[in-house]
Design a protein around this nucleic acid. Sequence first.
DNA 1: CGAGACTTTGACCGTAGTCAATTTATGTGG
DNA 2: CCACATAAATTGACTACGGTCAAAGTCTCG
Lengths: 251, 251
Amino acid sequence: MSMLSDVGAVSPDERSSTFAEGTNAREVDVGRVQSFWRTVERIPAGAGVSAGPESRPRQIVVVSGWVAETRILADGRRQIFAFLLSGDVASVGGSSHVGGRSLVALTNVEIADAAALATGDRASASITDMIRQDEERLFDHIVRIGRLTAKERVLNLLLELHDRLEVIGLVKAGAFRLPLTQEVFADALGLSVVHINRTLQQLRREGLLTIGRGMVTLHQRHKLAALACYQPDAERIRLDPQSRRPGVVRG
Amino acid sequence: MSMLSDVGAVSPDERSSTFAEGTNAREVDVGRVQSFWRTVERIPAGAGVSAGPESRPRQIVVVSGWVAETRILADGRRQIFAFLLSGDVASVGGSSHVGGRSLVALTNVEIADAAALATGDRASASITDMIRQDEERLFDHIVRIGRLTAKERVLNLLLELHDRLEVIGLVKAGAFRLPLTQEVFADALGLSVVHINRTLQQLRREGLLTIGRGMVTLHQRHKLAALACYQPDAERIRLDPQSRRPGVVRG
DNA sequence: CGAGACTTTGACCGTAGTCAATTTATGTGG
DNA sequence: CCACATAAATTGACTACGGTCAAAGTCTCG
């Protein structure tokens, strides 16, 4: 647990400017901004994001750092549902309903109360929007682990992360920081560490990406997207209702 | 497409009484109930649930029948995200955002406008609640396909369906109707039809379940739940925040 | 009684998992 | 700055779960 030492010392490049100077900062009045920043809380890497002292369910916004949304089974198997980056919203279970789901800081993290942002105006609408995006990503993730091969899964996830990080300004010259161990990666993609490692080796050999020391660069974006069945967010295919498969009913 | 013939002829035991005489029927005024029923729409088995003539995104409630929430990849691979039963809510993408997600009727189906239910009062709260449950199930599904073996997946899903059907009164003497082909089952669980079939054979041989002609009975519920890492809804394990694994940061 | 959809079975293959050992960071205290 | 400790990445050998292909058997329904 040595990594827990420098609590709160978030390195500059781990932070996004999403909230500090983000899109609609100017449209929000000063009082709200202040009360928002008052709720900011620092979480050391490796720690869980708890519901706070008054353990009621609440919604939080990630201000900086990486958070994993996970569940751990009785026998130790772990599944990571999503990675939360700056600007992402999530609910932390008070104590009752959120069955075995928990948020874990993968790096030092800053979080804030979503409620402090969502007071009334269009900000709350944009939070609704974030939640919708989060859900959309859950579906992507299901496809990933349900129907893609290991190689496709890895590429697909890296492409998603690339795009999300780019939006919040964390991609520099095509490269971005990926503060995940291969074990975390494996638990997200439903694979074993060993196989993740081998898959990465292969991708490296094929010259499709550069990865090491927590930095990643994806080469030949277009080719990769095709290889990984990756659909960049907005441009989703409209499914032809006639093209569905047979075999659906029984009596 | 022969099964499309008897559109609208929903057999009695395919219907749940959730809405007809369900929980808070008496607390809702007559006008609302009427306007709700006016929006009910019948979908033949095999058809897609579209956004309607005025193709805007909207929320629908399943009144009766089985609906699958799916995505189909460019190369034909299909992933089913969830099965929607009576009382379940879902959004159908107008045309823009809902990237390649579509609802398909697995049986003849009745759906209605969620909006017609959610007018103001506690009904809208209960819809919010349904949505939360749906999301929770998505997480269960991710664990299923991400971390469970074929045998576990099959049992786990069957247990979930059993419990959900029981709540809406569609389990009789421990048995319930399962109007899914093995192919559909496979696409939900991220497996091949052949392997689904073999897994079912095995489960039968082990005396864990009876399945055939669209009817299922699960034997030894307790044992099954353990075998399948199944956590019955409410009683989720509270994760000890201290029991997390190592290996989370890097620099 | 076909026709088509669905299920079942066999033979074989390959992706991914397991186990175990080695190498390479990363960090820490002297 | 070096020696040691620990976490993480890597590699090899072997296994097995699950996929693919193809054929045969069933069920439904017109």
